[in-house]
Nucleic acid binder design. Structure first.
Length: 215
DNA sequence: CTCTGGATTAGCT
DNA sequence: GCTAATCCAGAGC
């Protein structure tokens, strides 16, 4: 595997989201590399996607999504949690992929300590947990993924069937889209993903339906 | 300035 | 399954 080039990110967001499954996310802080394999993602695509932060236009928070692809968009929510997103598509088009689940692979004990848990399956099985296990906050908002201390390696292979489902934690608008993708047999997917079954389907079926629940 | 609610999590019932 | 925690972005005035 090698570091993904800028061209990888400058493509349709759904394609980038699917290709990110199985890639390795690595964070180098103080000379210690932590990270693992991406097993769950969600796509947020443009101002016409009501679930996307860009649905109400450019704001101070979401401006990084409007820039070139291949950069990290980090934001803070619920008073406690940081969310990691990979900016996609061409400059001026706001879109990103939210990273929601990671299988820890590098310096697992360091990640475990940051999360204050001994449970291997609780280290980075959720978007907020993932950020904390890698020691990433809004200080890393705008980080360049092509160079610098946060990197993505590919191509990836999750060694599991990929399933699609509706996105989690968003309101009714945009809830018909099957824009969440995950490795269905991997135990490091988020808790919500494990509990929701009815709106999930195999990737091939979702694709046939245009990635939508509606006909 | 004030108010509302969130791309979540941990802890309790 | 349910809810408190916790603070900031965005909207409305």
């Amino acid at each position: 595997m090698k570091r993904l080039p800028a061209e990888f990110y400058n493509r349709p967001t759904l394609e980038v989201a699917l290709d990110l499954l199985g890639c390795h996310l690595i964070r180098d802080s103080d000379g210690i590399k932590t990270g693992g394999m991406i097993v769950e993602v969600e796509a947020y695509v443009g101002e016409n996607d009501p679930a996307c932060h860009a649905s109400r236009g450019l704001t101070p928070r979401n401006k990084i999504m409007y820039g070139s692809s291949g950069f990290l968009y980090v934001y803070f929510t619920y008073g406690n949690h940081f969310m990691l997103n990979v900016v996609t598509e061409k400059e001026g088009f706001p879109a990103a992929v939210l990273l929601r689940g990671l299988e820890p692979l590098y310096n697992i004990e360091v990640m475990s300590a940051r999360r204050q848990t001994d449970d291997y399956f609780n280290i980075s099985s959720g978007p907020g947990k993932l950020a904390r296990s890698l020691d990433i906050t809004t200080a890393q908002n705008g980080a360049d993924l092509v160079k610098g201390d946060i990197s993505l390696l590919g191509p990836g292979n999750v060694d599991s069937d990929i399933w699609a489902s509706t996105r989690i934690g968003i309101g009714n608008p945009g809830s018909d889209k099957l824009w969440r993708f995950y490795a269905c047999d991997n135990p490091h997917v988020s808790g919500e993903t494990r509990s929701i079954k009815e709106s999930s389907r195999p990737l091939a079926d979702a694709r046939k339906n245009g990635f939508s629940l509606r006909q």
